[in-house]
């Protein structure tokens, strides 16, 4: 039992419990803040997986932009608390049985799921003695994955246009 395993177990437990609390808390502000906690732990998990650049991107983009956007929307539409309702699908207990069966099948076939294919061909190798992880990511991002990189930029631009277009003030016609 070395330090890597201990740190991994701490991060895994913290991520699991914070995401559970995020989906069971009644107050939307608390739910979004629990998602922030999970994302900060996941940023450290990405650091232990050897990519410091993705740690920075995760904190800046997810915790800094996306979740703050969620908080803005929660404050803007001003919902206090979600009331408890009766179940609106009768026979919903069958759903839990199917859920448990699926979980059983997942864990039964775990060896199949977790086996990395031995015929997997490493295409884009990197060597940490020749430069950091960030340097290798930049090399392949601007050469091999250049088209996908540009496509992500276009998608984000379209999202900005869509948000501005959909939320504009409508003028009464006629």
């Amino acid at each position: 039992m070395n330090w890597n395993i201990l740190i991994f177990f701490y991060l895994a437990l913290a991520m699991t419990f914070s995401s559970l609390l995020a989906i069971i808390s009644r107050n939307p502000v608390h739910a979004v803040l629990w998602v922030v906690v999970m994302i900060l732990h996941q940023a450290f998990l990405l650091y232990t997986l050897g990519s410091e650049f993705l740690t920075a991107v995760q904190i800046i983009v997810y915790a800094g932009a996306v979740l703050v956007l969620f908080l803005f929307v929660v404050y803007m539409i001003n919902l206090r608390k979600e009331e408890r309702w009766k179940v609106f699908v009768s026979k919903s207990s069958y759903g839990f049985i199917i859920f448990v069966v699926f979980l059983y099948l997942f864990f039964k076939n775990l060896a199949f799921l977790t086996a990395l294919n031995p015929a997997f061909k490493v295409q884009l190798t990197y060597d940490l003695s020749q430069g950091s992880n960030l340097l290798w990511m930049a090399r392949y991002l601007y050469s091999h994955y250049l088209f996908q990189f540009e496509v992500i930029g276009v998608i984000l631009l379209v999202v900005i246009f869509g948000a501005v277009f959909l939320l504009r003030k409508l003028k009464e016609v006629g």
């Binding site: 990405l46 990519s51 650049f53 993705l54 991107v57 990395l116 997997f120 490493v122 295409q123 884009l124 190798t125 990197y126 992880n133 290798w136 990511m137 392949y140 991002l141 994955y145 996908q148 990189f149 992500i152």
Partner: peptide, 12 residues
């Protein structure tokens, strides 16, 4: 797998 593609897919 020591392949850089996964990190880049995370970025996307």
């Amino acid at each position: 797998t020591k392949d850089i593609s996964g990190y880049l897919i995370v970025f996307f």
